[in-house]
Simulated assay, not measured.
Amino acid sequence: MNYYIRRFAQAIVTFVLGMFITFALYRLVPGGPVQALMADRVQQMKEQNQQIDQQELAQMAEQLTGINPDKPIPISFYEWLRDIILYQDFGESIMFQDPVFDILFRGMPWSIFLSVYGLLFGFTATIAVGVFMAWHEGTKIDSGLTVFVLVMRSIPYYVAAIVMLSVLAFQWGIFPTGGRAPPAADPGFNWEFMIGVAQHAALPILSNFIVGFAGGAIGMRALSVRVIGADYLRSARLRGLSTNRILSRYLTRNSILPIYTGFMMGISGMFSSNVITERIFQYHGVGWFMLEAVKNQDYPLVMAAFVFFSGITVVAILIADLTYGLIDPRAGTGATRESY
């Protein structure tokens, strides 16, 4: 129990510390968001021949960003974090004129939808192809798949996304050219809307699939080759077990364990890659909103997106750390290791 408590505490400290460092840079960088907003307001007042009120400027900046520029950084950070935890208040988006929390939840389900399916398909293909290559080690099948995977791995996901969009959407018209769902479809559990959502998500998910698939197939092959030489696998062959049973129950199950942590961390990497993918396909998820916020200097929305991506990363690593002992009982937990 103490092990799990320590891990939760470390995750919380890491998350809060990361937010504090970002918040401090948010405040201290010359020409940062607070100063930029106040400078824009001063320029507007000068053009309108209005009297400049510093207190009014500070209140305006605090209302938009959720940050009081007149208070010390630790106190201002505490108030900002308190508003997030108690009131889900990240401030107000400068570009969209809506609460940032509402904008995040507007795009979050769509980003999760893309990332989860892209990662699951990619991870499944990684396991299947890696094990298949190892089982046929040294053959032409192994050589051909190795070349194919290396070529796929060398292609950046955004290049693949642009090519697929150009060919499959614009030239051949197989998939929609952008968006999350058909504009004319009524949102809800109806066939028109659900099929439209699947069609619009197909190319972004395929882009994420390429990232997840090409990244780990070679590693899975190497791990599987090591397992093939184990004594228990030879014993399984001598016992006359079928090839499918050996591949699924012995080879795959034991080869997958070392890449489990990488799979969990891949969740955070997949969300990060969605920033470009969603922009290419005009898919309005968290990544699309974040890039628009960066382009338009919408600092409150940028900070909220950073908190979202940081939280996903910390939670994924924490889940991997807490559940690895369940996936591989031989590993145990920190409570059973001599190093703790």
Rank of each mutant, 00 (worst) to 15 (best):
S154D: 06
Y26S: 11
A320F: 00
N274D: 12
K46C: 10
I21P: 04
M303T: 02
T333P: 01
L203P: 00
T22W: 01
V315M: 11
D53P: 02
S273G: 14
Q55T: 13
G262M: 01
S268K: 03
G138Y: 00
G269M: 06
D328I: 09
W172T: 13
P187T: 06
G219K: 03
F308W: 15
P99Q: 13
I174R: 04
F96Q: 12
F90G: 05
I103Q: 15
M264I: 06
I85Q: 09
Q97W: 00
G173A: 06
L37F: 05
M270G: 14
R253G: 12
P176L: 05
A36Q: 13
A222E: 13
R279Q: 13
G178T: 08
L104S: 11
F23D: 11
R7N: 10
A214L: 07
Y87S: 15
L104W: 06
Y158E: 10
S154M: 01
T336A: 08
I317H: 08
T336G: 01
V149H: 03
A161N: 05
G107L: 06
A202E: 14
G31S: 05
G31A: 03
R7Q: 11
T139V: 01
A39Y: 04
V13Q: 03
A160L: 11
L326V: 12
M108D: 14
I267R: 04
R6F: 09
R27V: 02
W135T: 14
F306H: 05
I174Y: 13
I312Y: 04
M45N: 11
L326E: 09
S339D: 14
L168S: 14
L28E: 03
G91M: 01
G32A: 03
G334C: 09
W288A: 09
I218R: 08
F90S: 09
R237P: 00
S255E: 08
A169W: 01
F289N: 05
I276Q: 10
G91Y: 04
A181T: 04
T313A: 14
Y4W: 10
M194K: 02
G332E: 05
G285M: 08
Q35C: 07
A181E: 04
Q63N: 10
M290K: 01
W172N: 12
I267D: 06
L25D: 07
A202L: 14
L257D: 07
P69I: 04
I85A: 11
P30Y: 02
R234C: 12
S143A: 09
F289C: 12
G178K: 04
D98N: 09
T14S: 10
N49A: 08
G332S: 06
I256K: 00
T243Q: 13
G107I: 08
F309L: 15
F263R: 00
I127R: 02
Q297W: 01
T323G: 14
I5P: 04
V211W: 04
L81F: 12
P182R: 03
S242T: 13
W80E: 10
L257A: 10
S242A: 12
S242L: 08
T333M: 05
A39I: 03
G107V: 02
G196E: 03
P33R: 02
N2A: 14
I246C: 13
D89G: 15
L291V: 10
D70E: 15
N274A: 15
G107C: 14
S268F: 06
M264P: 04
A198K: 02
R153L: 07
A236H: 07
F101S: 12
N190V: 09
D142A: 01
M290I: 08
A316E: 03
